[in-house]
Computed example of a mutant assay.
Amino acid sequence: MLFSCGKKAPKANFDSVVKRAGVVDFLNTSVGVVDEFIWIFDDGDSSFAINPVHRYNEPGLYSVKLIAKNENGSDEVVKEVDIVGGDREDLSGHPSFSDADGYLIAQNEIVFVEGSPFQIQNIRGKALVGFYDTTNFFVDLGVVSANGERLSQSDNNTYVFSSPDSSYYFKEQVNWRVDGGQRYPTIIESRQTAWPSISGIQFNPTIDRSTTYTLSLNGLPSDADAVLYQIMDTSGTVLLSREENSSFSSYNFTSFELDTLTAGLAKVRILAYNYDTFIVDQRKIYFVNEASTEAAVEIK
């Protein structure tokens, strides 16, 4: 509860900060002894939180109402929040296509036996799905699954699945199901594609920002359209990403590129991918198959 002196009806007030992808942080600045807050977001949703965070799925001008109540009365205030469609958010660390209306990504994350770049120690499957609306927000698609495994819906309306071990990974076929929504129909598609094949990474465990750093595979990838060479922080956020076609097996990061990095522990990753597309209701959906491997490094 928010407090001030005296036993009077509260005075409702709030501020708001609009972030990317329709997310708004609401800051309650009401005055008085308050027993209950009611937020009405003008999109069919409401909240009883003191300082809610709300995501709008469509752009527009919304009249947000806050009601503050106590035993002596209530007060309300209405303020407008302007949600504007912006640049499309990429699915960080994955291939990006400027004409994509949606992505269905199936990834095999591979760990090789140390010292044996062609001997697989572990492999696990991951899946990621994101479809855009006409103003570049990710949309709610209901239930989404890959080969029978249900993906979890994230706060930004992307869908993810990550196998905890090698009991689940992608082989020759992916059976996708998307319930649909936000003008997308139900999608049931089976894609049978040769998976990208890669070997272990050749790398220096120390990245010296003052000179060139080479990241390479032990051989050319196969069944790949292109390869991403990436440097990430320890949480997996991509710091640098460069793409080469599959006729190359390495990339040289220049000192100019590396100078943007901060010293500390990090990871390097090589991700090979191929893709296919199909059109549904005049929207272009990309099916992307990925194979990746990574290693720990230190940036100095």
Score class of each variant (00 low, 15 high):
D82E: 15
F137C: 02
D233W: 11
S162M: 06
I207L: 01
S249N: 13
E290D: 06
T158M: 10
Q230D: 12
D155P: 12
S167A: 12
N274C: 04
G86H: 06
A68H: 00
G142F: 01
Y103R: 13
I187N: 04
L91S: 10
K171A: 13
Y286N: 14
T212A: 14
E290S: 09
G102H: 05
G32V: 03
Q173G: 11
D15F: 00
L151W: 10
W195E: 04
T262L: 08
I188F: 00
R242I: 05
A127E: 05
R269G: 08
A127P: 01
A295K: 15
L258M: 08
N57G: 15
Q182R: 08
H94P: 12
G236N: 05
A295F: 01
E89P: 14
V280G: 03
A295D: 14
A146I: 04
E149V: 15
I279H: 10
G181E: 03
E294I: 07
R177D: 06
S96M: 12
R191E: 08
S210W: 04
V144T: 10
E172I: 09
Y168M: 11
F131P: 10
W195F: 12
T211F: 05
V77W: 05
Q107A: 15
E80I: 03
G93W: 09
S163W: 05
P185M: 03
Y229V: 08
D25L: 13
L104G: 07
I270T: 03
E76C: 09
V143L: 11
T277G: 09
A100Q: 09
Y184D: 03
N28R: 00
G22K: 07
Y168L: 12
F97Q: 05
T135P: 13
R177L: 14
D15G: 06
S247Y: 07
V84A: 04
Y229P: 13
L215F: 05
Y229H: 10
G102D: 08
L217A: 02
N57Y: 01
S247P: 07
E290Q: 13
L141C: 03
D259K: 13
K300P: 06
G60S: 03
F26Q: 03
F37K: 06
D75F: 05
G264E: 09
V34E: 02
M232W: 08
N72W: 08
A266G: 10
D15P: 00
A266P: 07
S167Y: 07
V297H: 08
Y103G: 15
N289P: 10
I279A: 11
I38R: 14
F287P: 03
G115S: 06
I270P: 05
E71D: 11
Y168E: 06
A194I: 07
L240M: 02
A68I: 00
G86P: 09
K126M: 11
V31K: 05
F48M: 11
D223K: 12
V174T: 10
D225L: 06
